[in-house]
Computed example of a mutant assay.
Amino acid sequence: MNTSKGSLPPRSNGQQRNNRQQPRPAASTTTKKKKTKKRGFFARLIRLLLVLLIVAIIAALGYAGYLYWKFDKGGFGVDQPVQAGQSASEKPLTMLLLGTDNRPKHPSNLTDVIMVAALNPETKSATVVSLPRDTYVELSGYKKTKINAFYARFKSKEKTSGILAEDEMKTMMSKYLDIKVDYATVLDFQGFRDIVDEFGGVDVNISENMCYTDSVDGTDINLKQGPAQLNGEKALDYVRYRKSNCSPETKPSDDFDRNKRQNEVLNSLISQMQSLGGVLKIGKVLDAVDDNLQSDIENAQIKSMIATYWNISKENVKFVPVTGTWRSPYVYINDKELEAAKKSLQDQIAGTSSGDAAASADTP
Rank of each mutant, 00 (worst) to 15 (best):
residue 112 D to Y: 08
residue 336 K to M: 09
residue 34 K to N: 09
residue 177 L to N: 05
residue 270 I to S: 06
residue 158 E to P: 12
residue 354 S to E: 06
residue 54 I to C: 14
residue 98 L to P: 05
residue 204 V to E: 11
residue 53 L to S: 15
residue 273 M to L: 02
residue 262 Q to A: 04
residue 168 E to A: 14
residue 271 S to H: 01
residue 102 N to P: 05
residue 327 R to H: 11
residue 218 G to S: 12
residue 76 F to K: 03
residue 123 T to G: 06
residue 243 K to Y: 00
residue 298 E to C: 03
residue 287 D to E: 15
residue 306 I to L: 11
residue 222 N to Y: 05
residue 3 T to L: 15
residue 349 I to C: 10
residue 314 K to Y: 00
residue 105 K to F: 00
residue 310 W to C: 02
residue 51 V to P: 12
residue 44 R to Q: 13
residue 9 P to S: 08
residue 146 K to Y: 03
residue 220 D to W: 01
residue 102 N to L: 00
residue 111 T to C: 04
residue 229 Q to F: 00
residue 81 P to V: 11
residue 240 R to G: 13
residue 298 E to T: 10
residue 77 G to D: 08
residue 282 I to Q: 07
residue 217 D to F: 10
residue 100 T to W: 00
residue 213 T to H: 03
residue 100 T to D: 05
residue 364 P to H: 01
residue 353 S to R: 06
residue 74 G to H: 03
residue 304 S to C: 02
residue 352 T to L: 01
residue 363 T to K: 14
residue 156 S to L: 02
residue 65 G to C: 07
residue 341 A to T: 12
residue 223 L to S: 11
residue 262 Q to W: 01
residue 153 R to I: 10
residue 163 I to D: 02
residue 312 I to E: 10
residue 28 S to I: 13
residue 314 K to C: 05
residue 126 A to V: 11
residue 11 R to K: 13
residue 44 R to T: 14
residue 289 V to R: 02
residue 205 N to E: 10
residue 8 L to P: 08
residue 296 D to M: 07
residue 207 S to G: 06
residue 334 N to F: 06
residue 151 Y to L: 05
residue 53 L to Y: 07
residue 87 S to Y: 00
residue 23 P to E: 04
residue 101 D to W: 01
residue 129 V to H: 09
residue 193 R to L: 03
residue 306 I to D: 05
residue 61 L to I: 11
residue 303 K to W: 01
residue 140 S to L: 00
residue 58 I to L: 11
residue 94 T to Q: 08
residue 85 G to T: 00
residue 308 T to A: 08
residue 6 G to S: 13
residue 88 A to D: 06
residue 90 E to L: 03
residue 208 E to W: 14
residue 225 Q to N: 07
residue 190 Q to A: 13
residue 226 G to K: 04
residue 101 D to M: 01
residue 298 E to A: 13
residue 50 L to A: 11
residue 136 Y to N: 12
residue 158 E to A: 12
residue 254 D to V: 02
residue 305 M to F: 01
residue 345 L to G: 03
residue 77 G to Q: 04
residue 174 S to W: 03
residue 330 Y to N: 15
residue 113 V to N: 03
residue 207 S to E: 14
residue 339 E to K: 13
residue 152 A to E: 10
residue 52 L to R: 04
residue 284 K to T: 14
residue 236 L to C: 01
residue 32 K to A: 07
residue 59 A to D: 13
residue 156 S to K: 05
residue 332 Y to P: 12
residue 256 F to W: 12
residue 91 K to L: 04
